[in-house]
Amino acid sequence: MSPEPSPPAVASRATDVIHNIGYRSYDGPRLGRAYARRSLFLQSLRGAYGLGRSAKSKVLPMILFAVMCLPAAIMVAVAVTTGLDELPVDYTAYASFLLPVISIFIAAVAPQTVSLDLRFKIVPLYFSRPIERADYVSAKFTALSSALFVFTAVPVVILYAGALLAKLDFVDQTKGFAQGLLAAAAFSLLYAAIGLAVAALTPRRGFGVAAIIAVFTIPYTLVSALQAIAEEQGSIDATGWLGLASPGTLMDGLQGKFLGGTTEFPGGRQLTGGEGVVYLLVIAAAIAGSYLLLLRRYRKAGL
């Protein structure tokens, strides 16, 4: 034992003082490009629902999300309490049933995802960091498609949970549920690609919102009208080809043909095999084309 116990005690008390330690350098890991891309993806996905942004930015996405889930919850409640033997709506048809709500969501969220970066000139900051232009585009595209997938798939999950609670046929429901998720995925990819390509054209958020609503509703209304006329004229075959001209009818035809749903086409007509293949190709081409447009858009943007 030391004869003087007090000096060590004083010294240990002195270490409790808060020091101004000045600048500290960073020697830890730098996780590089792939990590930066993931960070941008997460930030954009959160931003789509207003997380990490001001309270004002959360209002619209959250309200729309509630509106999207509410009908599913009601249907489930009805099915469970009244003991229906099948759900009032197909898993795959749910998205087209609430298409206007989804269109508003994309119109609000796609400009939020890309126009803000353009308008407030944040894009050059991203490109002064390890990521490349292609990383930026892929992060934004995955973020918006994931946001849309959450938006369209959560109601499908609610329906499925309700169906199981109501003790409907498990195999049937699971098959329908899987088809519903696939439809939601295809829908999200197509709408995210088109929505982003349109939104990235302008740094003005208002223009972006208007342009996206126009792109998603005008062709759809026009095509539906033309399809009705074609049916009146007796050329029912033309309705399939007309359906290629709008994203809404493309998805409708696809889910009717491949995912066991029913279409909103005149007479509930299903696509023929050949038409189905063409629909698939056109959807793939639309996604790829929009993605290439985005890449082109950001080739020039920068410092």
Binding site: Y26, G28, P29, L31, A36, S39, Q43, R129, P130, I131
Partner: peptide, 12 residues
Amino acid sequence: HMARMSGLPPTA
């Protein structure tokens, strides 16, 4: 966010 875009782990 910008620190993470430069590759820094979340805590750092």
